[in-house]
């Protein structure tokens, strides 16, 4: 086995660098200002993360990754307005946000389609909440359902759909509100590997067709790299931003890129950031005694 020397994960091709330049010139949609989340008070105070600062530009795709307990879900929930930060600010189009609103659509890990509504009525929900007339809402909902490829299922109930289809409806439902930013909290976490891979491709296709900025939480390194423009890496002990990385893998993304040098370099870096400072696993200390010799002769 030969070890291939990987390039520096920060090294960008001219095309990729030009793309990031263009992204930086776009207006800022979401500003995260010195965000802190802590539980408890006094000596028992536990800081989940602090000093999180980030500007997200229009139509940028940001993934957030980190070990469990780093507060990545809490972070996105604060942006959504479902949790409160201890200090710091979230600005959407320069206006501070404090409570949930349709300008920040969210797709959850669990299935949160309303089980008593058909696919169409689920997608219409946000539109109706915002006072859209039933017929307009219906026409608009149909377009979004079409876009996620579920036109045949518009009158089905959520329990009749597979996990991947449910999440596609959830995406359509969030996008129907034409949010400024789409928040996705490990949306494919409950899906099997095959479906997950398909959904990642779907998501990039949808993102290409819609004017939407995406903040995507995941714990899967491949997923984080495959989807993102930039990756926000959070850590624990102490909690906070480890690094914000500009993804050097060019677009459009393909399956072959998973073995490209940039991809592997970035993956190695992420792996180091997330697992590098972890103490050795308990499993490494397991006793070495064996219980069987069956099958040894075949080796």
């Amino acid at each position: 086995m030969t070890t291939v020397a990987l390039p520096d994960y920060r090294q960008q091709s001219p095309e990729v660098a030009a793309r990031f330049q263009r992204i930086r010139e776009r207006p800022v949609i979401l500003q995260v200002r010195d965000l802190e989340k802590a539980y408890g008070a006094g000596p028992s105070r536990h800081v989940v993360f602090d000093h999180v600062t980030l500007d997200i530009h229009r139509r940028e795709f940001i993934t957030v990754i980190g070990p469990s307990g780093c507060g990545k879900s809490t972070f996105v929930r604060i942006v959504a307005g479902l949790d409160e930060a201890t200090s710091g600010q979230i600005l959407l189009d320069n206006h501070p946000v404090s409570e949930p609103g349709p300008d920040r659509g969210m797709v959850f890990q669990g299935y949160t389609l309303f089980p008593w509504l058909t696919v169409k009525r689920n997608v219409m929900f946000g539109l109706e909440m915002r006072g859209r007339a039933r017929s307009t809402a219906e026409t608009e909902a149909r377009q979004w359902i079409d876009m996620v490829g579920l036109a045949k299922f518009e009158n089905s109930y959520p329990h009749e759909l597979s996990g991947g289809m449910k999440q596609r409806v959830a995406i359509a439902r969030a996008l129907a509100n034409e949010p400024r930013i789409l928040l996705m909290d490990e949306p494919f976490g409950a899906l099997d590997a095959q479906t997950r891979w398909k959904m990642q491709k779907y998501l990039l296709q949808i993102w290409k067709k819609v004017d939407v900025t995406i903040l995507f939480i995941t714990h899967d390194l491949d997923e984080a790299i495959f989807l993102s423009d930039r990756i926000l890496v959070l850590g624990t002990n102490p909690g906070g931003v480890r690094e914000i990385i500009e993804n050097p893998v060019p677009r459009p993304r393909t399956l072959e890129q998973f073995l490209s040098p940039e991809f592997l370099a970035l993956k190695a870096r992420l792996d180091h950031l997330i697992h590098g400072d972890e103490p050795p696993d308990e499993e490494d200390k397991l006793p070495l005694g064996r219980m069987t010799t069956a099958g040894d002769d075949a080796e």
Binding site: R104, G105, F108, F114, M129
Partner: peptide, 18 residues
């Protein structure tokens, strides 16, 4: 009732009576 449904509705713009 699954509280996630209420959160989902909130992110879709539902207010208290809704």
């Amino acid at each position: 009732l699954d509280p996630a449904l209420i959160e989902a509705a909130q992110t879709l713009g539902a207010r208290r009576p809704q």
